[in-house]
Design a protein around this nucleic acid. Structure first.
Lengths: 167, 167
DNA sequence: GAACTGATCGGGGGGATTATTT
DNA sequence: CCAAATAATCCCCCCGATCAGT
């Protein structure tokens, strides 16, 4: 369990969304945020099935993700989730990833711009990183797969992400 | 400030939605939940002011709206809100609105297409209506203002919408 | 000629396709 | 010289300012 601080008003709003007596904050929030119970709660009642990467399952099914119809938006969202999942591992994966000339990820726009002729760097929201964006879909997928793999994320999870990638 | 307990997984998910460094939990949650800061807290400190059109205030400050950077997206969102606020009044306002040749709103794409040479009709999400989209920003504003006015919505509210229109 | 309305066309983003390198 | 991998040109489409027409 984690503890977060929120303002009084927001607290009242959330409390007001209680569906049954004794419902806990996580349950209410999950309902409001439209994310599934792929984690703890489910394990309690169903066959215990390990879910090592709840964060990605949540993202993949969230409206934040599915509402985005362009490849580039989903690409950024995914990279952001990967960073937040484990900044240290992400950093390692990020620095070691590049093409023959272009740097794919960096902490500043400039080094991406200068590593190629038209890399079109994009900021990765909520992250100190930037990515190249002037690539086709196949390469964007490769970048995601490559990072996930370097971060030690399971093949199964990588496949799920891959499948969810196309709109 | 209030403290709530949430499970680890949910915590990670929320943290992953951070938009800028140092953003606090309340801010992230408000964005995700689409609620603005204009509720109780504010009313407590300011003069209590009646809000006749909560629907619009909510929309204007929601992330759904502010995340949309293009005029056309905001335009559609607003029209959708107007329809849902009062379908009957919207219907009246919609049918009476047009230019010298073009029909601005209709229940079918075709009648908009045939009323001009390149009207580029767009569906109004969650609504049986379509709008013309091949117009400049000024005209889009005019369409919104005109409909709101016809629906009997206050000048004050119209001004608020107008102000929130540009990204 | 002033004001209003229509719709052409330029700008920019996205990413498939093509050019280039390995 | 061919195949695979990588870069980046360039086309398409969306948006909406600007200009043409009423």
């Amino acid at each position: 369990m984690k503890t977060i601080e929120i303002d009084e008003e927001l607290y009242q709003f959330i409390a007001g969304q209680t569906k049954h007596i004794g419902e806990d904050a996580s349950s209410i929030l999950r309902r409001l945020l439209n994310i599934n119970q792929s984690g703890l709660a489910k394990q309690r009642t169903s066959v215990k099935k390990e879910n090592h990467y709840p964060l990605f399952n949540d993202l993949l099914t969230s409206s934040t993700f599915t509402n985005e119809k362009s490849i580039i938006s989903r690409f950024i969202l995914l990279l952001s989730a990967l960073y937040n999942y484990n900044p240290a591992l992400f950093a390692i994966a990020a620095t070691s990833l590049h093409g023959s000339k272009r740097q794919y990820l960096a902490k500043d726009k400039l080094s991406l711009e200068t590593s190629g002729k038209n890399t079109k760097p994009r900021e990765i929201t909520g992250t100190p990183y930037w990515v190249i964006s002037n690539t086709n879909t196949a390469r964007k997928m490769y970048i995601i797969e490559s990072i996930m793999s370097d971060m030690g994320i399971s093949e199964t999870m990588i496949n799920q992400v891959t499948n969810a990638f196309l709109p």
